[in-house]
Design a protein around this nucleic acid. Structure first.
Lengths: 106, 106
DNA sequence: ACCTCTATTGGTTATTTTACCAATTCGCCA
DNA sequence: TGGCGAATTGGTAAAATAACCAATAGAGGT
């Protein structure tokens, strides 16, 4: 494979990979509505705070979210509004999968 | 976290995870244009055929692509047209990341 | 200055993913 | 029916990911 194309694919994969985790999807979904600090997200998700912090760093490193310090807290927000559009398509796939399941079950 | 929400997030993550690999992104991109058999994709990507076959099974298992036997060959095609829309948003993120890189470099 | 609350980082372990090779299955044709 | 090409499956080793705990860093208040 052409190394230039390969490099582009890797860049794309990095961004998609950053979203490819239940907690990180949840975070993106929440940040699409409003900014939250780490401890708020931690309370919603329930995992250890260090785990949440690492998820946030993955998303930030991919350029999907941004952070802003406010005193002791760090508030995160969505950097790219279109990130939510992912969900529309994903839901399409899920719907289709469920429909097909029903078809087979008949 | 509410188990119902958790389950939905896992379902979404599975689909996104299926896309989160350079070769699989390439495959989706190609199949968006036309159907291809495994050996054609293998030639384009260059990895072992068993590797390609496993990538295809991941995508198929997620409901993103479908397969159709034609004699000895198996042709794969996109099952969900919107899968390409992923790329638009991903490209947005990449563009922004590059812009920011330039800003910082100044 | 000290304590506390918030967040990140380092370290460890368990799990998952990936890629290759080898073996097997399946269809086709001589 | 024997062999060939296409594809999948099983096995294995290396690498990446994820979650926790512990330790550290910073800000704010007392």
């Amino acid at each position: 494979m052409d190394p230039k194309i390969k490099h582009r694919l890797e860049a794309r994969a990095k961004i998609i990979k950053a979203m490819a985790h239940p907690s990180r999807l949840f975070i993106v979904d929440q940040l699409a509505r409003s900014a939250y600090c780490v401890c708020e997200l931690q309370e919603m998700i329930g995992d250890d705070m260090s785990t949440i912090s690492k998820h946030l760093s993955v998303l930030k490193n991919a350029g999907i979210i941004k952070d802003e310090k406010k005193g002791a807290q760090v508030y995160y927000s969505l950097r790219v509004p279109c990130a939510i559009k992912f969900f529309d398509c994903v839901e399409d796939v899920i719907k289709r999968n469920i429909e097909e399941q029903k078809m087979i079950a008949q």
